[in-house]
Design a protein around this nucleic acid. Structure first.
Lengths: 220, 220
DNA sequence: CACAAAAATGGACGATTGTCCATTTGCTGG
DNA sequence: CCAGCAAATGGACAATCGTCCATTTTTGTG
């Protein structure tokens, strides 16, 4: 079998190479354990038991435990963006529609669920003591900020102080969404996605009265 | 010395009984370690070294490590309320003034600082796996909710749907403040208290246009 | 089919964890 | 001043941690 064919097979194979599959299994198992037991309760023994692999596997694929945890953070970040992207691409071209899509995404079951927020806040709690996690938190935040700002600055055009208005709207929306996540994290059963969405739209309608109303309806 | 006098001395003594002092030293030392190293990095050895006490002290004052951590959570919660109370009692009698005082308090250096938020988010990260912490988070949240709601419901009087408006305003303000805390936690150097305050007031002004404006000025 | 390389295993290691308890210290009432 | 009791100590304990590596199993190639 020629070399290019072998590489081709690797590309089109339905099940990825075992090495990659095992690596992925470890990442997913680690995410599961973190979601259930937090960072402090996550040990390599628990992870490999969950993954159904042997203990040595971890150090075959990752330099150490910290590298494994960092990979989980990267995995979560990637999944967040991938899911958000679906909502954005389904939305219309106007700023209002993009903003509505962003908020709908951040409150959707695909993105905002107990499994995900448990992991997210577990990492955040330990972020201060490990700078590696902060990097991912920061890049996520900065990209999100840009996305919101780009949409808001267009709505703010013509107002008295567009930059300040767009900045305030961006920071406010992100803070409000973040606060809603915390609310969901602390009271997942009481939480109502529709109410959360309405409150965020009320905030947006307060700043851009000609663009939104409190029901999330987009005005002309 | 008579019995009542002895008790009186205990009450008025400047330095509290040694047993209580040591207990307090452990709680404060634990809080310090959590703030620096997170929950996962907090061990009894580190705590007693910081407190300058022997290892056995912990189990003399607390049933186990979990009880010590829970006491730290209680301590943090108590200090939060004590400091918030100062701001509220200094405020005027109107609902607007009370709300302004609450927001000013939550953004003040006394309440919102790196030491405090590190501890707060460290606990939150491990909250899911230990229900003891959730209880304090919940009681704090419920009391805060009531305080905000009582103020907002008066402002909402006369509006079309007062209860819904007051509920939305309460949840929104708490979520917004929570989000600002997260912003401070992740970017303590970039964070600007004035900007945060202005954004929150813009939200309030959007819901109660006759009561606030975006500069935090209270309208008649 | 045989052989070399890679992947995977799991026992062993020292360090550290939370907990326990026999011993020592310090204070107080008689 | 001393007896008695609570406070405080720190060494010892088993359990668990992350890590390492000699060994076995699987895989791919000539």
């Amino acid at each position: 079998m020629s070399q290019w064919r072998k590489e081709m097979d690797d590309l089109i194979t339905e099940t990825p190479a075992k090495k990659i599959r095992h690596r992925d299994m470890l990442v997913r198992a680690t995410a599961d354990i973190i979601s259930e037991s937090g960072i402090a309760g996550t040990s390599i023994t628990k992870v490999v038991e969950r993954a159904g692999l042997s203990r040595g596997m971890v150090h075959l694929h990752f330099e150490n435990k910290a590298a494994l945890l960092l990979e989980v953070a990267r995995h979560m970040s990637d999944e967040y963006y991938a899911r958000q992207k679906v909502f954005i691409s389904d939305a219309g071209p106007t700023s209002q529609e993009k903003l509505a899509a962003l908020i709908t995404a951040d409150l959707s079951e695909e993105i905002l669920n107990q499994y995900t927020v448990n992991i997210w806040y577990a990492f955040r709690g330990e972020a201060r003591s490990d700078n590696g996690f902060m990097a991912y938190s920061d890049t996520r935040d900065e990209a999100l900020y840009e996305t919101y700002y780009d949409a808001y600055i267009k709505l703010a055009a013509g107002s008295e102080n567009p930059q300040v208005l767009a900045r305030d709207a961006t920071r406010g929306t992100i803070a409000l969404t973040e606060g809603m996540w915390v609310d969901f994290f602390l009271h997942p059963l009481k939480f109502n996605r529709g109410t959360a969405k309405r409150i965020i739209f009320r905030f947006m309608a307060g700043l851009f009265q000609t663009a939104f109303n409190q029901d999330g309806a987009i005005l002309t």
